[in-house]
Simulated assay, not measured.
Amino acid sequence: MAIIFDDKKSINDYLKKPDIHPESFTSLCKRQTVGLKLVSDDMEQEKKEQEEVAKLLEKRFERKKKLLFDNLDLILRHKDEILETPRYANIDAHYAIKGGGCYVGPISTSKHYNFAGTLVNINLKLGELLELWDNEQFKIPCKCGSTAVIHYFSGSPLSGGSIATSICPNCKEQIHNIRGRSFGKYMGHLLLKMRESTEKVAKSVTAQWTLAESEYEKKVAEGHSSCWYRKGAEFHGDGKSCDLETMINELQLKEFAQQQ
């Protein structure tokens, strides 16, 4: 009998005990008498709306992924410029690479954190993705003579075996069934880049808050009332962000101008 592993689940999913607490008949009767549901209609509506938003985002990310791959040659030509330009390097690119395997489940390239009731998403950034693709583990020669980059991998942490898929920036050909590479190295490099993305965000927030505290103390010393004035008034972000579509358009315009 064949054993089939679901690489969409991690080992924790298999080991986790079901969080089910049977309701007594007496409690059931009392709850139904007062018209209470274990899952209210409002909760169901919220869940439905969240699912609709998730489907819309999935379509959006698929469009962005296609756009990135269609312009991969342009992006790689300007790799150094992108890495040196924060508004380019910090563009969300979590949808461009996926991975996972038996027992570990899918590798998340988008992390969600809750800080004081505020949800913060930290995604794999374009800069980290380009650095990942610059690693030999994620490169493979294409028959057209160019170098393809791996954008999907799966495997087993037990055997270390893997299978991957790449795309060529030149001919746009997909190369499937890439084998013979360490699954652990795929995982290690990707997780490292995700942690670098997290560190970058955390350091940026810390730096901005330190600056806000400094500005607050300065203005209080200048006579601003500390009764109505708070440090949060001086807390700012990194400025307007850039999206993939804008960056591609700017790079195309730059190349066009250089050809004139």
Results as ranks from 00 to 15, higher is better:
residue 254 K to R: 15
residue 167 I to Y: 03
residue 28 L to I: 06
residue 222 E to A: 11
residue 217 E to R: 15
residue 42 D to E: 10
residue 82 I to S: 02
residue 243 D to S: 10
residue 98 K to P: 01
residue 217 E to P: 07
residue 51 E to M: 14
residue 150 I to R: 12
residue 222 E to S: 13
residue 24 S to G: 14
residue 27 S to H: 04
residue 135 N to S: 15
residue 88 Y to K: 04
residue 123 N to L: 05
residue 1 M to G: 10
residue 191 L to F: 02
residue 209 W to E: 00
residue 208 Q to H: 13
residue 149 V to F: 05
residue 174 Q to Y: 08
residue 175 I to Y: 00
residue 63 R to M: 07
residue 196 E to C: 07
residue 64 K to W: 04
residue 14 Y to A: 01
residue 121 N to R: 12
residue 213 E to G: 06
residue 89 A to N: 06
residue 157 P to V: 09
residue 137 Q to R: 15
residue 1 M to N: 06
residue 136 E to V: 14
residue 60 R to V: 10
residue 143 K to E: 10
residue 197 S to R: 01
residue 256 F to T: 09
residue 241 S to W: 09
residue 46 E to G: 03
residue 203 K to M: 09
residue 130 L to E: 01
residue 117 G to S: 03
residue 253 L to D: 05
residue 208 Q to R: 15
residue 152 Y to P: 01
residue 140 I to Y: 08
residue 236 H to P: 03
residue 193 K to I: 04
residue 96 A to E: 02
residue 216 Y to H: 14
residue 118 T to W: 02
residue 123 N to C: 13
residue 160 G to Q: 11
residue 32 Q to W: 10
residue 13 D to N: 14
residue 92 D to Q: 11
residue 203 K to Y: 04
residue 242 C to N: 11
residue 202 A to Q: 04
residue 175 I to D: 00
residue 118 T to M: 05
residue 120 V to M: 06
residue 108 S to Q: 11
residue 76 L to M: 13
residue 218 K to S: 12
residue 12 N to W: 06
residue 192 L to D: 05
residue 9 K to Y: 05
residue 71 N to S: 11
residue 105 G to E: 01
residue 255 E to N: 08
residue 75 I to M: 11
residue 117 G to A: 03
residue 27 S to T: 10
residue 50 Q to G: 08
residue 245 E to T: 14
residue 36 L to Y: 05
residue 53 V to T: 09
residue 198 T to I: 07
residue 187 M to W: 12
residue 250 E to G: 00
residue 179 R to N: 02
residue 82 I to A: 03
residue 128 E to K: 14
residue 227 C to P: 00
residue 244 L to T: 01
residue 152 Y to M: 08
residue 96 A to W: 02
residue 142 C to G: 06
residue 44 E to R: 15
residue 106 P to A: 07
residue 69 F to M: 13
residue 159 S to Q: 09
residue 4 I to E: 03
residue 231 K to M: 09
residue 226 S to N: 09
residue 122 I to S: 04
residue 238 D to Y: 04
residue 243 D to Y: 12
residue 122 I to W: 07
residue 8 K to R: 15
residue 184 G to Q: 08
residue 87 R to A: 06
residue 84 E to V: 09
residue 255 E to F: 03
residue 133 W to D: 00
residue 229 Y to C: 10
residue 179 R to C: 03
residue 53 V to Q: 14
residue 229 Y to K: 06
residue 46 E to S: 12
residue 236 H to G: 04
